[in-house]
Simulated assay, not measured.
Amino acid sequence: MPDIRRLAFLLTALVTPPALAPLALAQGTPAVTPPTTAPRAILFRLVENTAAITGTLDGPTAARRWTPGESLGPLARQQIEATVKATALGPTGKLGAATVGGRIETNDPCDWVRDTRYLTTVKTVFPAHALSAPWNPVPRPITALPLNSAPYLAIVAAELKKRGLTAAPRLVQLLRTDLDGNGRDDILMVAASDPVTFSDGVMSTLYAERAGQYSLVLVREALPGGVKTSVLGERIFKTAPAADAFPSVLTQRIGAVADLNGDGSMEVLVDDYVHEGEGTTVWQSRTGTGGMQKVLEWGCGV
């Protein structure tokens, strides 16, 4: 999570607009009452052979909401332990069919995290995500654009200038899609002073070490009232971190873009790291009101 040093990530519940979930479910707080009905969808975060249970989508169509993975209902637990079919998801859409499930274990040392197995490995880099749901999770195409696109580099340069940074703009991800189905394309950008790298197929942790380093996650939405830029992640280092400072991590990446709750709009999943921790934040377009809204945080870290 941007610029936050903490011992644990928060895990909150994703809801179908306009209702909002409680904004804090952290280590040590009371768990959500487990649902007694079968889930409508199950969301997983995939890393190699492990699938963290991010949450289950429960309730009737008009009031669907996510139950955190730590509060699995009995029917959800049965389904996962018997294995479920899911769609593996990456930055540009569907990666393929996946089988997820088996024995559910508690993550150590993050005892609020529930892990199971990613049994069918689709060729990709990790982290990736998977959704078990009856609807199409990617209703519109997602296109990767050239990273040397001058207009978007100029946008990054302007955003850096606002923050007092004169570093050269660099794009490490540039995607185009229609998030909310309004017929207008939106642009998703990840800008970083250093490349996002992968070691053995898993996203590497990159620490801030010098002045001028940065990482920005931006979404430019084409809305009825004009174009609006939302910042989904921001890590800026105008000066070099002090030698005795708490370690700060730069790494951020758009992990997937998908319709997670079946409402036709696609959410943006941002994967990132903090010192000895990792997480995913889900952002949703607020159709008609402008800007992106953070609706889910999942993570594990100490």
Rank of each mutant, 00 (worst) to 15 (best):
A41M: 03
L46M: 00
E70V: 12
R114F: 01
Q79K: 15
T36W: 06
A31V: 12
P39M: 09
D108E: 14
P34E: 11
L72W: 05
D108I: 15
A52W: 08
P68T: 01
P68E: 05
I104C: 05
Q79Y: 12
T92E: 09
L89A: 05
A51Y: 01
A62F: 13
V100H: 11
L43K: 00
G59N: 14
G102D: 12
T50Y: 01
T87S: 15
L57V: 06
T37S: 09
V32P: 03
T56C: 05
T50N: 04
V84A: 00
G90Q: 10
L43P: 08
V47R: 05
Q79C: 09
K94E: 13
A63S: 15
T56P: 04
D108L: 13
A41Y: 09
A82K: 14
K94G: 07
E70L: 14
E48Y: 12
T99K: 08
L46V: 02
T99R: 10
W112A: 10
G93S: 14
V84M: 02
T33L: 14
G93A: 08
P68L: 07
G96R: 03
G101Y: 00
R40E: 12
A97V: 10
R77F: 11
P109D: 13
L46I: 00
P60V: 10
T99L: 13
L75V: 09
T92P: 10
G69Q: 00
T106H: 05
I80S: 06
G59K: 02
A76V: 06
T54P: 00
T83Y: 10
L57F: 07
G102P: 08
F44W: 01
L43S: 14
R40W: 10
A98Y: 03
A86F: 03
E48L: 13
A63Y: 13
A97H: 06
G102L: 03
V100C: 05
E70F: 14
V47A: 08
E70Q: 12
T67Q: 05
W112S: 09
I80Y: 01
N107A: 02
P34Q: 05
P60E: 04
A31K: 15
R64D: 07
G59R: 07
P109C: 12
T37F: 08
V100P: 04
G101V: 11
A62S: 13
S71K: 02
F44E: 02
G102Q: 15
T54M: 14
A97L: 02
R114I: 10
Q78W: 10
A38H: 11
E70T: 09
L75E: 07
L75M: 09
D115G: 06
